Computed example of a mutant assay.
Amino acid sequence: MPFGAPADPWIPPNLRLVCLDIDDTLVDFTAACRTALAVLLGRSDLWPLWERITERHTAMVVSGDLDYAAAHLRRTQCFLGELGVVVDTEHASGFETRRKELVRRSWRLFSDVLPCLDWLRAAGVLLAAVTNASGAHQRAKLTDLGLARFFDHVAIAGEIGVAKPDPVMFHSVCATLGCTPEEVAHVGDKLHTDAVGARDAGLAGIWLDRGSCGEREVPEGVHVIDGLDELPQLLVSEFARIGVPAQR
């Protein structure tokens, strides 16, 4: 290029696929689970312990050391054990059955979900739900809440053998739907698991920071929105064209 010649302008890529996390992105999962634990145990301060134990057992599912059913039982036994309650498999199974039923009754969509999904469908993009949680559990949730009809693909970490933020998780979704990473945006509520992981895999990483007070540190190359109502404007500003003709 001759000295002083203007640099080629940046041309934003086309958007062909939007990936969305499920829990606490589309569904107010934390509220439902916290409510269920509080009802079962009569106290509301145990959610951080449940989260830590859940993360540990989810990692064992992804690594192939446990299947989901076994992990859920062992998680319950471990959790109750931390509270000084030792239970056998039968009692752990009963606790887990009651907990799941309470959670299922409490599932609610965030108010911005359906308008956003309707807009994405109208824009012609492909949609994928990408989750680290149990496949059967998540598919039932999508069906119960009327969301299954929106998605072209549901990617489950335990079925793929890797979990977000591993790039393989994101790349497998791209490959399944015939897209390159630069044609894909991923939205999720977890900064590092969702947004940074997607960014590092070559996708547009979007952090959905619900309830933010506005004071936050956002890593370079990560986009941030406070609600899904802000997603359409972000996508239009970051991509040259929203959607391509796609077979449904």
Results as ranks from 00 to 15, higher is better:
residue 2 P to G: 01
residue 64 G to T: 09
residue 43 R to N: 09
residue 13 P to R: 10
residue 156 I to K: 03
residue 177 L to E: 01
residue 7 A to S: 12
residue 71 A to L: 08
residue 164 K to S: 10
residue 151 F to I: 04
residue 239 F to A: 11
residue 234 L to W: 10
residue 134 S to C: 05
residue 78 C to K: 03
residue 54 T to A: 11
residue 223 H to K: 02
residue 81 G to N: 08
residue 167 P to I: 11
residue 19 C to F: 01
residue 111 S to N: 09
residue 21 D to P: 01
residue 187 V to L: 09
residue 127 L to R: 12
residue 66 L to E: 09
residue 79 F to W: 04
residue 109 L to K: 00
residue 60 M to Q: 10
residue 123 A to P: 01
residue 170 F to L: 03
residue 36 A to Q: 04
residue 33 C to I: 01
residue 174 C to T: 03
residue 152 D to E: 03
residue 178 G to C: 06
residue 176 T to C: 13
residue 105 R to G: 15
residue 89 T to D: 15
residue 95 F to Y: 08
residue 166 D to G: 01
residue 70 A to S: 14
residue 58 T to Q: 15
residue 175 A to E: 14
residue 227 G to K: 04
residue 43 R to A: 14
residue 93 S to T: 13
residue 38 A to S: 14
residue 231 L to E: 05
residue 7 A to T: 07
residue 237 S to W: 05
residue 18 V to R: 06
residue 108 R to G: 01
residue 192 H to S: 14
residue 20 L to C: 08
residue 175 A to Q: 12
residue 204 A to T: 14
residue 96 E to N: 12
residue 204 A to Y: 05
residue 234 L to A: 07
residue 105 R to S: 14
residue 9 P to D: 11
residue 148 A to T: 07
residue 31 A to Q: 13
residue 219 P to D: 05
residue 101 E to T: 13
residue 58 T to C: 11
residue 99 R to Q: 11
residue 123 A to R: 12
